[in-house]
Amino acid sequence: MKTNSSHGLHGASLCTPYLLLVPLGLLAALLVLPSLGPSNARSDGLGVLCGGAGADGYSVSSGDDEEKAAGTAPPPGAGTEEFSLLVGVLTMPSRRERRDIVRMAYALQPPAGAARVDVRFVFCNVTDPVDAALVAVEARRHGDILVLNCTENMNDGKTHAYLSSVPRLFASRPYDYVMKTDDDTYLRVAALAEELRGKPRGDVYLGHGFAVGDDPMPFMHGMGYVVSWDVARWVSDNQEILRHNDTHGPEDLLVGKWLSIGGRGKNRYSLKPRMYDLNWFMDNFRPDTIAVHMLKDNRRWAAAFRYFNVTAGINPSDLYHQP
Rank of each mutant, 00 (worst) to 15 (best):
F219H: 05
D246G: 12
M217N: 09
G249N: 07
R233G: 00
A232H: 09
E240C: 13
V231E: 01
G249A: 14
M217E: 15
E251Y: 11
I241W: 01
V235C: 03
H248N: 10
R233V: 02
I241N: 04
D252A: 04
V235T: 04
F219W: 12
H221I: 01
R243T: 08
R233A: 02
D246M: 06
L242W: 14
S228Q: 13
W229F: 05
R233N: 01
P218V: 15
R233T: 00
D230H: 00
W234V: 04
M223L: 06
V235A: 06
P218A: 15
A232W: 11
S228P: 07
P218N: 10
L242K: 08
N238A: 09
N245Q: 14
E251F: 14
V231L: 01
Y225N: 02
T247Y: 09
S228E: 09
V231S: 00
W229Y: 07
D246W: 13
V235G: 03
D252V: 02
Q239C: 09
P250E: 13
P250Q: 07
E251K: 07
V235H: 04
N245V: 09
N238F: 06
D252K: 02
S228H: 06
E240G: 10
I241V: 02
W234C: 07
R233L: 04
P218T: 11
W229L: 11
N245R: 14
V227Q: 06
V226H: 04
A232P: 04
Q239V: 14
N245A: 14
W229T: 08
S236T: 05
L242Q: 09
Q239H: 05
R243W: 08
I241H: 02
Q239T: 10
M220N: 00
V231M: 02
W229V: 12
D252W: 03
G249H: 11
D246P: 13
S236D: 03
Q239N: 09
L242S: 14
A232K: 07
N238I: 14
P250W: 10
R233Q: 03
M217Q: 15
D230Y: 01
N245E: 11
T247N: 05
M220S: 01
Y225W: 05
V227A: 08
E240I: 09
Q239A: 13
G222F: 01
H248D: 10
E251H: 08
F219C: 11
V226F: 14
L242V: 10
D237M: 05
D237W: 02
S228F: 06
P250N: 11
P218E: 08
V226A: 09
D246L: 14
V231D: 00
E240K: 15
M217Y: 10
G224R: 07
H248A: 12
S236G: 03
S236Y: 01
G222K: 03
D230P: 00
E251Q: 06
P218D: 10
H221W: 01
I241P: 03
R243L: 08
H244L: 10
M220P: 00
M220Y: 00
A232E: 08
H248V: 13
W234R: 06
H248E: 14
A232D: 05
M223P: 04
V231I: 03
H221N: 05
H244T: 11
M223N: 11
T247D: 08
G249L: 08
M223Q: 10
M217L: 07
V231C: 03
